[in-house]
Design a protein around this nucleic acid. Structure first.
Length: 366
DNA sequence: GAAGCGTGGGG
DNA sequence: TCCCCAAGCTT
């Protein structure tokens, strides 16, 4: 691999970054010094995993307002932590962040990269990024942006992740020359704003030495990864209400929407016409929608079923006072039904038999 | 090593 | 509408 030395290729990043860099709330003014608040860097990096900057900014600001330091986060209730993360997605990041804050509050910050990498939720990229941005350690952080930029700059065929070790070694001199924090952030900023999957090479400070551009191959480097297939299902999404309470699944530790409260759902395999003579329970319905997750699509039909009395719920289900509903952490899907409850329903078109749903939610009778 | 994990924006 | 993607990590 006859790659030119990294400072030779990457030095133009510094003046470019100084000119165009976005003013982000976690970004230090002085990129030469260790960050004044490593915790802020940690929070930003966890939030930024698979999540765009514009989405993260308001969450970051509120988070630091509510949990200003590791101790505050370590002492927070799980529901409060998830509530502050509500809507951001990939909710186990919030639990990892709390676990890491607990470790830092008790034992202080790790002294090296290996120590950071042992913290919950910090993988190879995030540990290196925190090392470089918070502590100015010469730890090359390779995220999707950096891999894409370097794959094009150096004309790497195949998956650049397979060359991670070579790339980290190659980057070391540039980290020293430009400074770990500056180089790390400039490289990612270039990938996020210019060297995107569909690149804007006319704005790129490295275009003159970009091997992929010179070869006319930016469109095919790096190669696109194959997508995971996703499954589809049709579900009733049901708000049972009785005696001023609603029925919710309590948070679970694993799986989809873990850590959040959820409305009960039922496979919508059976569509029974609403027989008003035989179903005295008033049922409201609203137009449905499709909820999209990473590996799943749900065609949802929201229902509101009001009962005279509460039944004893099955394991994992709880009756929650309606007044407490607003304070519980819910995913987007379940927020949507919660908000529908305050709007007029359109009247049930077709709905399942409420008695069958109640049977599925009630504790088995002895 | 592949699967699983949320949500929103853009082409 | 559909597909791709976005500062990845854990199991």
């Amino acid at each position: 691999m006859p790659w030119p030395a990294s400072p030779e290729l990457l030095t133009p990043l510094a003046p470019w970054f100084e000119r165009v860099r976005r003013d982000l709330p976690w970004r230090a003014a002085d990129l030469e010094a260790p960050h004044p608040d490593p915790y802020a860097v940690l929070v930003s990096e966890l939030m930024l995993q698979q999540t765009q900057v514009a989405t993260v900014v308001p969450y970051f600001t509120r988070w630091l307002d509510e949990f200003p330091d590791p101790r505050a986060l370590a002492n927070a209730e799980d529901d409060a932590v998830h509530k502050a993360w509500e809507g951001l997605g990939y909710y186990r990041r919030a639990r990892f962040l709390k676990a890491t804050a607990t470790s830092v509050a008790a034992e202080g910050w790790p002294a090296d990269l290996a120590g950071l990498a042992k913290l919950p939720g910090l993988g190879p990229y995030t540990a290196a990024a925190v090392g470089a941005i918070a502590f100015q350690w010469p730890t090359p952080a390779l995220d999707g942006n950096a891999f894409r930029v370097l794959a094009r700059l150096l004309l790497i065929d195949g998956d650049p992740k397979d060359r991670a070790a070579d790339l980290r070694f190659w980057l070391a001199p540039a980290l020293g020359a430009l400074g770990p924090s500056r180089l790390t952030q400039a490289l990612m900023e270039l990938g996020a704003t210019v060297c995107r999957p569909s690149p804007a090479c006319e704005r790129c400070p490295l275009a003159g030495h970009c091997a992929a551009k010179l070869a006319g191959r930016t469109g095919e480097i790096p190669p696109v990864a194959k997508r995971a297939k996703s499954t589809s299902s049709a579900l009733w999404l049901v708000a049972f209400e009785a005696e001023g309470h609603v029925l919710l699944h309590a948070p679970t530790p694993k799986g989809l929407l873990a850590g959040l409260w959820r409305w009960p759902t039922f496979l919508a395999t059976v569509h029974l016409p609403q027989a008003t003579a035989q179903n005295p329970q008033p049922t409201r319905a609203w137009p449905g929608w499709t909820q999209v997750y990473t590996h799943r699509r749900e065609a949802l039909s929201p229902l509101h079923i009001v009962l005279a009395d509460r039944f004893t719920p099955a394991a994992g289900l709880r009756w929650v006072a309606r007044g407490e509903l607003q304070g519980l952490p819910l995913g987007k899907r379940d927020q949507r039904l919660r908000d529908l409850l305050d709007r007029p329903g359109q009247g049930p078109l077709e709905a399942p038999d409420p008695a069958a749903l109640i049977k599925a939610c009630a504790a088995p009778s002895v």
